[in-house]
Design a protein around this nucleic acid. Structure first.
Lengths: 338, 338
DNA sequence: TTGAAAGCGTTACCAA
DNA sequence: TTGGTAACGCTTTCAA
């Protein structure tokens, strides 16, 4: 069987010849429409369309240094929490004419750094979600390529993060209102900035409300990690458990249940993230919710702005969006049994 | 505040000058190590490393026509079912030196086609997951760029799909063993090839085992869709419900529960996919499981092979991997109550 | 407003 | 085994 060579793609030169103008005019007519005569422009555009011309991203990138590609790097693609972020970022990337590449760091700072270095030559900028990198590394990267952080704040770097201070206040007040006096916090990975914020916020709010909180951990921010953590929580005797995230909360829930501990009758459980599943686990989970899809969109917008205006990268006060959070009260929290 | 220009990246020419060889030699030493003298090669590689040389993907792509980028297009990025697929594909892409871009078609065939056309100039090939496109369109695309289908089979196109025939057999035999005689199937989107396979497999197996199965739908393949479908299922009076996927099964579960129908005492429920949450919904769901992460890896391997060997694209019998499936029996299925 | 031509960084072909 | 050089397709000066 003989092979018919793939048709050579239509180039700007083909369009130029067909339209009877110079290649540079075609280029302008297509990407700088204002800088060309109306009739010429429309003629060129028609010819281009008729010939099925598709600009070569590689050639364009080589000339301009812009790839029209954005990278989204996450510690764990499979955490349902990130699904909304991915979707929001992808949508907005598409809306702004960009392609979104995805990177998974598997919860490892080293892998995250490698990923950024690997992707750097191919993308215009980075969205770092729940970055496990040390501040210094992030600052260093953001000097090379535009960076927008999601779920993390670092001085001088643009970011979008949920309001953990207000969120933890909501959690603590909810528990206090239910009569709880002793709670424990199941900590996630030490590299999690959000985890640090959560603990800090909980401690501060607890102090104000005379709630005693102990911190246990760190644990892996997964269902398995929560299962393990649930074991330790049992020993403490607190009436409320606040888990680093919903994954852990769900794991802990299973552990408690398997030990015959009733939630919320014996122990109340609170998570963070309001992930898929938080509303149908048993019992449905009280959790702090934030709008991840919106965060993804905003982050892309910020990143695109940075990319378009790299010259002002230094000296500018970077945007820091702090997004509102809402406590979603479900059946995993209840009044303390007397 | 003055702006310090970003340092001009190190090019192959810089390396050549520093190493005292020609640019073409540098190129070879780096990408075709065999075609260059050992000492020269090592010298060049050292110099390149010392200078921190990073090849320009754009320049390389322009020269070779290869972008080292693969696209993964999915109908719904947020469906937890796809998390494993994404992760497997991303891992294997990285392992084979590729970048993975992601596209979301939002369950729309038109959006999927647009996505493919938009991405085509930027990638070496496509992974189409649970594609909603008509066969003809897929064949057409695969003539332009290498395509590997996941969760779909189309004659003459390479694919990886779970064995639905065997899977549905397992489901039907499980239900029959529990004494069920009447079941209903809650159908998903008509464009879902897997949905078609599921219905076909169920019908065939049911016939062999004298199980009566009615088909209801189509419904949206989501929790909300399942909630709606649950309503309709109630009216039927069957003792078993097989949902198009776990999302729908979970939705239907909630609906039945809210109507006071006990699962599995009154009705048994079976899903497909074994997604995150299937093990902790209430009751935990009996569902047909397949290895999505493995599928993602295999699909990337197949795609990379196609890309590397485009010349044999026509005339070759394409690979069709049919992966095993396993019924995971949990508490949502039980014996028929007499 | 348009055209001509010089890059952009690699690869690949052809000589040497 | 190496070097010289012409692409690759587009953008962007610089002139006209």
């Amino acid at each position: 069987m003989t092979r018919n060579d793939p048709p050579r793609p239509v180039t700007i030169i083909d369009v130029a010849r067909e339209a009877g103008v110079a290649p540079s005019t075609v280029s302008r007519a297509l990407s700088n429409p204002d800088r060309v005569n109306v009739v010429t422009r429309e003629h060129v555009q028609q010819v281009a369309a008729r010939l099925g011309y598709r600009p070569s991203p590689a050639a364009r990138a080589l000339g301009t240094g812009r790839t029209s590609t954005l990278a989204l790097v996450l510690p764990d693609i499979t955490n349902p929490y990130f699904a909304g972020l991915i979707r929001g970022a992808e949508r907005q990337a598409e809306a702004t004419g960009h392609i979104l590449v995805i990177g998974n760091s598997e919860e490892s700072a080293r892998a995250e750094a490698r990923m950024v270095e690997r992707l750097a030559p191919s993308v215009d900028g980075f969205l770092l979600g729940s970055s496990r990198l040390p501040d210094a590394k992030i600052v260093q990267f953001s000097a090379m390529r535009p960076v927008v952080l999601v779920n993390r704040r670092v001085p001088s770097v643009t970011s979008v993060s949920p309001d953990q201070q207000d969120g933890t206040r909501q959690i603590v007040e909810h528990l206090v209102a239910l009569g709880h006096q002793r709670a424990i916090f199941l900590a996630g990975p030490p590299q999690s900035w959000l985890g640090g914020q959560r603990w800090a916020g909980i401690s501060a709010a607890a102090r104000r409300h005379h709630l005693t909180v102990r911190r246990l951990g760190p644990y892996a921010p997964s269902v398995d990690g929560g299962f393990l953590a649930g074991e330790a929580a049992l020993a403490d005797g607190a009436t409320a458990v606040i888990a680093h995230n919903d994954l852990m909360a769900i794991g802990a829930l299973r552990r408690l249940r398997s030990r015959g501990v009733s939630v919320p009758d014996d122990v109340s459980m609170v998570g963070f993230d309001n992930i898929f599943g938080a509303d149908f686990c048993d019992p449905p989970l009280t959790t702090l919710s934030d709008r991840t899809e919106q965060a993804g969109r905003s982050a892309v917008d910020l990143l695109v702005a940075l990319v378009r205006d790299q010259s002002r990268l230094d000296g500018e006060t970077p945007a820091e969006i702090v997004a509102p959070t809402t406590l979603v009260v479900r059946e995993s929290t209840g009044p303390v049994r007397r």
